[in-house]
Amino acid sequence: MSIFTQNPARNISTLLICVLAILLLIVFEHAPLGNYWLTVMDIGIFFVPIFFLARVFDAYPALIWLVALGLLKDLTSETPIGFWVLLFCVFYMLATSQRQFLFNARFRTVWTTFGLLTFLTYVAYYLVSLLHPALEASLLLTSVSAVATIISFPVFNLPFRWLSADDGQYGGA
């Protein structure tokens, strides 16, 4: 069950906004920025909308979209098919399991939980890249990517805070 149960139209618009945000972040990653360090890291800013989605939306349609977006990311970023689908699903699974804990939680608690879940997802990222023959793992770059993702949370989470303000999400500031 969703915690957005009172207005189905709003549910759909929330899902679409999150899906669009993830899609744009996936595409924006491929914009030629001309910076070497940005190309050697995998900063997962798209985990921010996934985190929001996991907290507010029903599993079925959200997961279908996440699997589709994960496949798209695998296709465009040339990783083996299933790599980003797996990470999106792992992150979503971890985030949905924290729904009840994060209900009306303070922002600092939400951020800390996001940090912990992102760290666990990047552990999975590192382990899979160690095991898969087509991927080359780097502990340092994976750690830096995880830290950059966690640090970027407050900025990229702002639109979602505004989006959820009416419904009392992140209720305690």
């Binding site: 599993a59 699997v67 689908v85 699903c89």
Partner: peptide, 27 residues
């Protein structure tokens, strides 16, 4: 709710299928 059919359970099944795809599909 039945725990196995909620978001966490379905995401777990999707993750397992994705892991299978990851190691079975030739790149």
């Amino acid at each position: 709710e039945q725990r196995l059919l909620n978001g966490t359970g379905i995401a777990l099944i999707c993750a397992l299928v994705a892991a299978l795809m990851l190691f079975a599909l030739p790149n």
